[in-house]
Design a protein around this nucleic acid. Sequence first.
DNA 1: AAGTTGGCCAACCGCCTGCGT
DNA 2: TACGCAGGCGGTTGGCCAACT
Length: 168
Amino acid sequence: MGRPPCCDKVGVKKGPWTPEEDILLVSYIQDHGPGNWRAVPTNTGLLRCSKSCRLRWTNYLRPGIRRGNFTDHEEKLIIHLQALLGNRWAAIASYLPERTDNDIKNYWNTHLHKKLKKLEANGVSSSSSHQPISKGQWERSSKLTSTWQSKLYVMPCPSISRTVPRRS
DNA sequence: AAGTTGGCCAACCGCCTGCGT
DNA sequence: TACGCAGGCGGTTGGCCAACT
């Protein structure tokens, strides 16, 4: 028997969120806090899957999120961290607390990846030419150190509000 | 003005991990 | 120890919109 779906697909709404749904979700989380996502659709009456609720909150509704143009500093940091960590967007996002992993991933795929390719085509070496830390290296470093910051071998993160990456 | 193309980004999908039992 | 479930993550998709022909 295969693994059951995360939620009942029948009667679950998909697609863009409406302002009314956003209000329901935000007011519920303001009252109860994020977490226990499975209970959110039931308690709010939202016809959404729990995953969808969590995604909407973390990527769009969560307070403190900055949207729009990335600064030069953010761009350089993303390039540096991507070269260091590879496509571990959640780990990269922990260094940019105002940005979501989805935002960073989208920005990388649409802007930076092309930009770097262009630069490399022009013979300009980029930081992405470095080898990212392999999964094995990551795991080994995790055994040697206890703090999340030390795993990265880069500057300490000013505020890590998200969970540490998996396989850490 | 109408049709086509390409970029952007919100959201979905499926896999993995950690935790509780 | 094994199993089931919820949450987390990265890859991918699809719809919208602006630019172009």
